[in-house]
Design a protein around this nucleic acid. Structure first.
Length: 474
RNA sequence: CUCCCGUUCGUCUAGCCCGGUCUAGGACACCUGGUUUUCAUCCAGGCAACAGGGGUUCGAAUCCCCUACGGGAGGCCA
């Protein structure tokens, strides 16, 4: 059958292919917990990418069955995180769609209806007030080492999962499982499958932590007489240090954290797309259109990957450098204001001039405040080590006293003019101009490093430079 | 305890399906040098890996088996 079908399809060429592909329906089904975990974000991203790659539909379904958590706030964090990453959904909260409602808390009647199908088919039974799914197969009782109890087990036929990432996986369920709790609420495995059926989901892309449970899901699909969707179980993201998958407590685990720290969404998105997937060539920095083009199941890895903040930062730095100065300033300003480094009413031109010096060397926006605090504040800490190093060669006060008159009078106060004047002076003293540089930098910034010195002095302006040197000498 | 998945430089990975082109490529990190002040940019160079064992083969990172290790699941959590 498939061979014949394929021949047919090829005959019609691209048109038919596009038609088939447009049938793709994927979903991201988070439960709002109050934070947006990087692993969830990556799952959302892969689903979104696959939908965009195939011209399919990306559904956002909220698994909000846990009423205890602050759902309003938790939902807001989630939706905001999605938007920040640029993951727009075609159906779901605020977007609507023909398969709603998109909140599990509002789908009870659908679950009732589907449960009835299983009851009618004789695939359920009641025990301890809960409704259980009945596996098919020979039954026996055995002691379960994990449950520490004598329980009924079933020799069910193994279920075959044809996973798009892992290939053929076989697994047999051996215990009946609960569909509806004593309190009447349906469990995850049941609602997940029902929703996927009811919403016409064709591809389930999710973390490998669900792989073992997939046999339950396939049992349910079979019981409903529905062909299961294509499963694609993607590898997990492991924590940077130590063992286990990343959890919300680990550094760098939360998407909202990156937003606050001034990371660029495009950089974060690019980085997480590379966790467990790659384009099979040497490209790393890719714009989103390129990623959409290249993204597909064969490029997804099987092995788990470890989160590496350094690599994220390096990518972020690349994106940062591409920004024009206006955008860079726009993004950096709030962080600098927040850090108390830059006053709310600070002059935009001065800020931009300073950031123009710092941008080429910036790795992330959140380190910006310490990098350039001395441009804005006259009280800055003097790095002792640098001070000691400088004094070893010559008395910086003497050197500065020599050049101070030049700085006080030179016109205009710009990098080129400063350069020639300082060079001329150095020559007259039988010195190289660089002999003066460390003392100059140290006196006006307290640092041993920073942006190019002369442009830096020019940006700071005569008044600031002169008074700082005077204070240093005194 | 059982089951499932995985394992290439410190890290992300290419190569594996279709065995020779692999003295295993790239990137991040790190180290060195340069960019004739600094340095966080930039440039050049360097360090560094096929988990172990057995088999198949003229030949294995690539195929098969075993072991080890890592991860996940087994809940009236999702």
């Amino acid at each position: 059958m498939p061979a014949l079908l394929w021949r047919r399809l090829s005959a019609y060429g691209l048109t038919v292919l596009l038609f088939i592909m447009s049938q793709v329906r994927v979903r991201f089904a988070p439960s709002p917990t109050g934070f947006f975990h990087i692993g969830s974000a990556r799952t959302a991203l892969f689903n979104w990418l696959y939908a965009r790659h195939t011209g399919g539909t990306f559904v956002l379904r909220i698994e909000d069955t846990d009423k205890e958590r602050n759902t309003d706030e938790a939902l807001r964090v989630l939706l905001e995180g999605m938007r920040w990453l640029g993951l727009d959904w075609d159906e779901g909260p605020e977007a609507g769609g023909d398969y709603g409602p998109y909140f599990q808390s509002q789908r009870q009647s659908i679950y009732d209806e589907y449960l009835k199908k299983l009851v009618d088919a004789g695939r359920t039974y009641e025990k301890d007030g809960a409704i259980w799914f009945k596996l098919e197969g020979e039954r026996y009782t055995a002691y379960d080492e994990y449950l520490k109890a004598e329980i009924e087990k079933v020799k069910a036929a193994p279920v075959v999962i044809d996973d798009a990432v892992r290939g053929r996986v076989e697994r047999a369920e051996e215990k009946d499982f609960v569909l509806v709790r004593k309190d009447g609420s349906p469990v995850f495995h049941f609602v997940n499958v029902v929703d996927d059926i009811a919403m016409g989901i064709t591809h389930v892309i999710r973390g490998e932590d669900h792989l073992s449970n997939t046999s339950k899901h396939v049992e349910l699909f079979n019981a409903f007489g529905v062909e299961p969707p294509v499963f694609a179980h993607i590898p997990l993201i492991l924590k940077e240090e130590g063992s286990g998958k990343m959890s919300k407590r680990d550094k760098g685990a939360l998407i909202e954290e990156y937003e606050e720290r001034g990371f660029l969404a495009a950089a974060v998105r690019n980085y997480i797309s590379l966790l467990g997937w790659n384009p099979k060539d040497e490209r790393e920095k890719m714009d989103i259109g390129e990623i959409i083009d290249l993204f597909d199941f064969p490029g997804i890895n099987k092995g788990n990957s470890r989160f590496d903040e350094k690599k994220l930062s390096a990518l972020n730095a690349e994106y940062l450098r591409e920004l024009n100065l206006e955008s860079f300033t726009f993004l950096a300003r709030p962080l600098l204001n927040q850090a108390g480094v830059v006053a709310e009413d600070e002059d935009e031109d001065y800020l931009q001039a300073v950031l123009g010096l710092c941008q080429p060397k910036a790795r992330s926006l959140d380190t910006m405040s310490e990098m350039c605090a001395y441009f804005f504040q006259d009280e800055y800490t003097m790095d002792e080590k640098t001070g000691a190093n400088i004094s070893r060669k010559a008395d910086p006060k003497v050197l500065l006293a020599e050049v101070l008159p030049i700085l006080e009078t030179i016109e205009p106060f710009d990098a080129d003019t400063l350069k020639s004047a300082l060079e001329a002076h150095a020559e007259s003293q039988g010195q190289k101009v660089f002999a003066y540089f460390p003392a100059l930098r140290y006196s006006v910034s307290g640092q041993g490093g920073g942006p190019d010195l002369l442009p830096m002095l020019a940006v700071m302006g005569r008044d600031r430079v002169v008074s700082r040197i005077q204070r240093f000498i005194a």
